[in-house]
């Protein structure tokens, strides 16, 4: 079995989804006196991205690496934080006797605290990810 045994129709559908740029250069509408001067450069970069020239590929790889680093860093921090809690409670059971306003601290730590923290981490990631994307677009568009 090779990956080509999917059959001709599947392959055709896949190519249609991937877009014709995979096979032939596409026709473009040319507008004289476009108000933005740098359009040509942007177009060329996008074509480079689509055709996966070495420059385009490098750009995309960098973007993915950046995004992955943000995502992994934050996920790791959260997961480590969550995983440290049960073992801490297990090793130091006396934490269960500490109270604030009559409510044991572990109940506050597990019942209330996680939700704002999770939202905060999500907010930070959204900001980072959107910044990476904005930088990428600006770079392409310059």
């Amino acid at each position: 079995m090779s990956r080509h045994d999917a059959g001709k129709p599947e392959q055709a559908a896949r190519e249609a989804w991937l877009g014709e740029q995979a096979r032939k250069p596409r026709r473009r509408r040319v507008v004289l006196a476009d108000s933005t001067k740098s359009r040509g450069k942007a177009l060329r970069t996008i074509i480079e991205l689509e055709e996966q020239t070495s420059v385009g590929e490098k750009l995309v790889r960098d973007l993915i690496k950046q995004q992955l680093r943000s995502a992994f860093g934050l996920a790791f921090a959260v997961l480590i934080g969550m995983c440290l809690l049960p073992i801490t409670f297990f090793l130091f059971p006396q934490i269960g006797d500490l109270k604030i306003l009559g409510i044991p601290i572990p109940w506050l730590v597990l019942g209330l605290a996680p939700f704002p923290i999770l939202y905060g981490v999500g907010w930070v990631f959204r900001r980072q990810a959107e910044r990476h994307e904005r930088d990428f677009v600006n770079m392409v568009d310059r």
């Binding site: 689509e50 973007l63 993915i64």
Partner: peptide, 13 residues
Amino acid sequence: NQILLRLHAPDPL
């Protein structure tokens, strides 16, 4: 490579 480009390229492109 093309598929990963599609997954990660910012929407405005």
